[in-house]
């Protein structure tokens, strides 16, 4: 039998399976912690810091920290919310994100978070970094202007032997996501679509399918980010599953 632990989130008493990550444990208790680099079913990386919470007064990433008995976790505080906003604003100013013409608009998690946080304009100056577009692959269109280097594609899109199809190239400011030279050549349609789905922004796109989903039917047109699964829905799902 799974061991349960008890902890608090914003003073609310919660219970979850020992060892589960704070993000998932919070969700099971009906509490949403914003994430960006995290992706269900994929090993967390803690790279974007959007999910930063305070555990016993220390800043930690909720996607990589397991819950433990007696933890006092802070999520929805002015300080932490401002910090999350700042992270999202930094991403907007570091890349070149022009939502009006982006086909991921409405399906983009970065945009959805900005709406959730009600960010009207970033507090930081835009960097206008020069980044190129790699359109050379027959199936994938790679817009580096929009990449937030979350590594979701590296972690989630793998061939049948478990090898990552995407990889980092270059260092520091010049680091870019790219397809593995060999594995990229044989990229299936299915994996191409998965890569586009996994990408939280409009950086990895499958060619020639842009704007197929009408406005109103896109992911976050229907349900704003952070409201997809409430505790009730989850418990209903679990009961149903059992």
């Amino acid at each position: 039998m799974e061991k349960k632990v008890t902890f608090t989130i914003d003073n609310k008493e919660c219970t979850a399976t020992a060892g589960s990550f704070i993000v998932d444990a919070a969700r099971k208790n009906g509490i949403y912690i914003p994430t960006l680099c995290n992706y269900d079913g994929v090993k967390p990386a803690g790279s974007c810091r959007v999910c930063t919470v305070k555990v016993n007064k220390r800043h930690l990433t909720a996607c990589t920290t397991p819950v433990a008995e007696g933890m006092e976790i802070e999520v929805d505080t002015a300080e932490l919310n401002d910090l999350r906003n700042a992270v999202v604003e930094l991403l907007f100013t570091e890349g070149n994100h022009y939502c009006p013409a982006c086909e991921k608009s409405g399906d983009c998690e970065l945009q959805a978070l900005a709406y959730r946080f009600q960010i009207m304009a970033p507090r930081f100056p835009f960097q206008f970094n020069e980044r190129d577009i790699d359109a050379s692959h027959p199936k994938i269109y790679h817009d580096h202007n929009r990449c937030i280097l979350c590594k979701r594609c590296i972690r989630a899109v793998k061939d049948k032997d478990g090898k990552s199809i995407f990889e980092f190239n270059n260092r520091a400011k010049e680091v870019r996501i790219k397809l593995d030279d060999k594995l990229g050549e044989t990229l299936s349609d299915e994996l191409a679509l998965k890569a586009m789905e996994v990408c939280p922004v409009g950086s990895i796109l499958v060619k020639e399918i842009g704007f197929k989903t009408p406005i109103g039917k896109r992911k976050f047109d229907r349900i704003p980010i952070g409201t997809q699964e409430t505790t009730e829905q989850l418990s209903h799902k679990e009961e149903h599953h059992e």
Binding site: P100, A101, E103, I133, A135, Y141, L205, K207, E208, I209, G210, F211
Partner: peptide, 14 residues
Amino acid sequence: QGRPYWEAPVLVQR
């Protein structure tokens, strides 16, 4: 220039 062609109807209307 340089943008994917299917983006044009949405981009240029701006």
